[in-house]
Amino acid sequence: MAGQTDPHVSLFSPEEVEFMAEDELVEIVPNMNMEPLNFIAGDFGRFIPQIPIQVPLWLAVALKRRGKCTFRPPGWLSVDNLTQVLEAEREPQSKFQALPFSYVEIARLLFDHARDDIPDMYMVRSLVEDIRDVRLHKLENNLGTFLGTSAVKMENVSAMEVNLVRPFARRALEAFYKHDKPEAAADRNTRSSRQPREANDEPRRPLRQR
């Protein structure tokens, strides 16, 4: 698809996108006693058995791995909600549904580390995958309807999705902007000979017809 994730092209690597998602807060139920943790990133705790508490996802995963807590899956990660979201996403001409900015990464981490804490795990996972696919398809279609040459609003688009379309969107918008500028032609001529085209060595692909 447009903007395939080539690590040299996309700005943030998948690992970095996941790193950012790991700071999102999730609710866990600890099964041990632990004094408060005074991290550089903030204070968390204290931890008391059976008392739910909000912690960053990375901490939750670390505790879960050692069998020290169970996850409380976030409300949006339920079969009911996801079914609804999927149906709404499938409506023709619909907008993007509201999901957490890092929904793909959060879901992925929970599926990898907390499968026993998610009711109907397999159903939930396939729903998330379907939603992701529908949204990517929609995003690709939406790229054809870009309007305006200065600002394009992207409603409810998630972290991974932004990262994926960024290289394509940037080149397309740059091209639109260049052609829209009144003095574009003259400016371009002087510029191409004078300036070594900024240090950008990405291949320039022509807009593909789809």
């Binding site: 600002a151 394009v152 609003k153 992207m154 409603e155 409810n156 940037r170």
Partner: peptide, 10 residues
Amino acid sequence: GDLYFIRYKI
């Protein structure tokens, strides 16, 4: 919370 693709200069 609004998300945009926008020209950097702006």
